[in-house]
Simulated scan of single mutants.
Amino acid sequence: MSDHDRELSRAFDGQAERFERAPAQRDPAALQELVTFAALPPGTRLLDAGCGPGLVAEAFLAAGSSVHGVDLSPEMVRRARRRCDRFGARARFEEGSVLDLRAGPFDAAISRLVIHHVEDPLAFVRAQAALVAPGGVVVACDHTADPDPERARWHQAIERARDRTHVRSLSAGELVDVLARAGLHGLRLLEEPFELDFDEWFDRGSPTLPKDEVRRRVLAGHARGFEPVPRDDGSITLRCVRALVRGVRPRG
C-alpha cells in the first residue's frame, strides 16, 4: 500500500460514521439516479470500487445486482457488510485496492466519489475495465472541477485545505477523456447539481487549515461546480455539480 493509500485508509476509518450519515452520500434520489443511469439488468455481477459504507452497493443490490465491494478502509468495509447483510451471498466486501483485485470477471464496475482521491485516475479506471468482461459496463461518478484553470486551482486549494486525502477533481470533460483513454466505447455523460452545507462538509473532512480560514477562502471566489451561496443565518450553501460517465468495454 502506498503512503497515500495508507493516509486514505486512516482518514476514512476516522470519518466513516459521519460519511455514512452525510446527506449528499445518503440522498435516495441521487442513488436512484445512479442506478438508472448505469442501466444494469437484474442479475448483473457488479464491482463497487471504493465501496465506502455500502450505500451504493445497497442501492444496486435492491435493484437486483450482485455486488463485490472493495475499499481501503477496514471500517468502511465493516459498515458495508453490516448495511448489506440482509442480501446474503449477493453482497461481498473486502479490504484492499481495485488495482490489486483478483476477483471477476464482472458484468459491470462502478465508482462513486472516489476518483478525486486517487493518484492515477486512468490506472484506476483501467483496472476496473480489465476486470469487466467484454461488453460490460464501467460507470464513474464524481464531483467536477471548473475547466477554467484559474478557477480550478482556487477550488482545488480549498478541497485540499478541507481534506488532506483529496488529490484532484476532474472536469466533466476530463472524466469522459479518462474513460475513453481506458478503451471504453459508447460514452455517455450526465451532469447533475447537488448542494452541500459548508459546516457539515468541512466537519467530516481531514483538514490541513482551520475552519475559519477555509470559510474565508470559500467566500472569496467561485467556480463551475463549486458556487458558495451565503445564507441569512450566516451559514453557506455550496452549489456543486457531479458528473456520471458510462462506457462499455468493446467485445472485440
Score class of each variant (00 low, 15 high):
residue 1 M to Y: 13
residue 6 R to L: 14
residue 8 L to A: 10
residue 9 S to V: 02
residue 9 S to P: 05
residue 19 F to R: 00
residue 26 R to N: 07
residue 33 E to Q: 15
residue 36 T to I: 02
residue 37 F to T: 02
residue 41 P to C: 03
residue 43 G to V: 09
residue 43 G to W: 12
residue 47 L to V: 04
residue 49 A to H: 06
residue 54 G to S: 02
residue 55 L to H: 14
residue 57 A to W: 05
residue 62 A to V: 03
residue 67 V to A: 07
residue 72 L to W: 10
residue 73 S to W: 14
residue 74 P to F: 13
residue 75 E to S: 08
residue 77 V to L: 08
residue 78 R to K: 11
residue 81 R to T: 05
residue 84 C to M: 13
residue 85 D to C: 07
residue 87 F to L: 01
residue 93 F to R: 07
residue 99 L to G: 02
residue 111 S to T: 15
residue 112 R to G: 00
residue 121 P to W: 08
residue 122 L to E: 09
residue 126 R to F: 00
residue 129 A to C: 14
residue 132 V to D: 04
residue 140 A to R: 02
residue 145 A to R: 13
residue 146 D to G: 09
residue 147 P to H: 12
residue 156 Q to P: 01
residue 160 R to A: 05
residue 162 R to M: 06
residue 164 R to T: 07
residue 165 T to D: 04
residue 165 T to Q: 06
residue 166 H to R: 02
residue 172 A to W: 08
residue 172 A to C: 06
residue 173 G to H: 01
residue 174 E to D: 12
residue 177 D to V: 01
residue 177 D to P: 00
residue 178 V to W: 09
residue 178 V to Q: 10
residue 182 A to T: 07
residue 184 L to R: 06
residue 185 H to P: 00
residue 185 H to V: 15
residue 186 G to M: 09
residue 187 L to F: 05
residue 189 L to K: 08
residue 194 F to Q: 03
residue 194 F to R: 07
residue 197 D to N: 00
residue 198 F to E: 02
residue 199 D to Q: 05
residue 200 E to P: 01
residue 200 E to Q: 14
residue 203 D to C: 10
residue 207 P to S: 03
residue 210 P to I: 10
residue 225 G to L: 12
residue 233 D to R: 03
residue 235 S to D: 07
residue 241 V to T: 13
residue 242 R to M: 09
residue 245 V to I: 14
residue 249 R to M: 08
residue 249 R to P: 06
